[in-house]
Amino acid sequence: MRVLVAEDHGPLARSIANGLREEGFAVDLTGDGQEALHWAQSNPYDCVVLDIMLPGRDGWSVIQNLRRGGSSAPVLLLTARDAIEDRVKGLNLGADDYLVKPFAWEELLARVRALVRRGHGQKSPVRQIADLEIDTAAKVVRRGGKNITLSAKEYALLEYLAHREGRVVSRQEIWDHLYDAADEATSNVVDVYIGYLRSKIDKDFDLKLIHTRRGLGYVLTAQP
């Protein structure tokens, strides 16, 4: 899952980015409002964490322009002001959630995850595909009642496929949601991770869930 963090206070921005990366998110980081708008418009983020007081262009303006341009990426506003008018203004302009500094890391993480789910039309943190169970809150994957241990990237790939269950996703789409702009990996790494995931999820089971659509991409589904 790919997240844009737009925050101009360096130490805070770096901590949020590091924390999210350790949770398996691909994170792009910027401290400038103009740049934040540009990035959000040209990349398919699963969530945007947006500070209001940004130089170049404030958070209000970023979100307004983003929504005008038709983007529906979930936006979590960060602000140091907790006046009710500010919160209402943010939500009215099209923000999806609001967090007042200073916040607890767990809360930011939970809200980002909830926004990612909501962005993919999911309310429950637990996804069930045949006998495969993915708990996106606890990041636990089970198949046939048995826990499966996945690396962060493998988990992110599986979660993304699960969000798009039944639909074919191209390598590029997967790459866009799994890697940040600074990553130099090519979209071929997607094939590698699909291979790892298959060996952990499908190998020991008769019902295969991950399918290749030649020339199109991959799909996660219980109906072949």
Binding site: P11, L12, S15, A80, K101, P102, L108
Partner: peptide, 8 residues
């Protein structure tokens, strides 16, 4: 903001 940075 610095408090948030420290806590996070």
């Amino acid at each position: 903001t610095p408090v948030a940075a420290m806590i996070t």
